[in-house]
Design a protein around this nucleic acid. Sequence first.
DNA 1: ATGGTGGGTTCCCCA
Length: 255
Amino acid sequence: MKIVTWNVNSVRARLPRLTPWLEDVRPDVVCLQETKVVDELFPREPFEELGYNLVISGQKSYNGVAILSREPIENPVYGFPDDDEDAQKRVIGGVVGDVVFLNLYVPNGSTVGSDKYEFKLDWLERLHRFLSDEYDIGEKIVVTGDFNITFDDRDVHDPERWHEKILCSTLEREALGKVMDLGFIDALRKHHEEPGIYTWWDLRGGSFWKDHGLRIDHFLMSPAALEACSSVTVDRDQRKGKGPSDHAPVVAVLD
DNA sequence: ATGGTGGGTTCCCCA
């Protein structure tokens, strides 16, 4: 089973690049973030024509998540249990075969100490509670998406410049660490210990060509899922050329 | 240290 996470920064704007890539790579499950469209306007047809089932949860202008899957998606999950009606659309999940998926768009947090930063930390606590209450770490679980957090300085092109900055600060790393303590493992690090593997580069200032990147898109796997995971790779080519997202897709294979 | 780009909608927000 080939699994993808990709923050596409608008599913409609990315279609010309997304659908040919799906035809080429042929993933089984695709977790998208920042779809930036309400459900009624989501472009379902191009994906259904490629043979995908969809679950979507979007809103106007911001956020939005979706899962595409060749096999049916059972037991869909939309948001946190304690979300209210106007909650930001950042969580979608479901079960494909014997694999439990949760696809997340973690809040960015803006700047350390801001209201948005506090919202991010609170949101991560709610994520922890949700996973702790409603998921069984003994199953094959894949929690993936745009976490907007680097695990450590290996994930940062210039750790001094980013020291205690947003996406790299101690409190958000600790909040993610608490989630990991439920028994999840950073799947990419099973296969790659070296620094310098990134998934996001700012669109501004030619960051990609300077390789000024961060690794903020992750696959958190339960032990049973990790056992089956034979590779995790970043498709940097999708950050190249005309009209890229600021994120590259990350591809994991479960045997 | 700053500003740079891009998407979606609005006369500016968010990343």
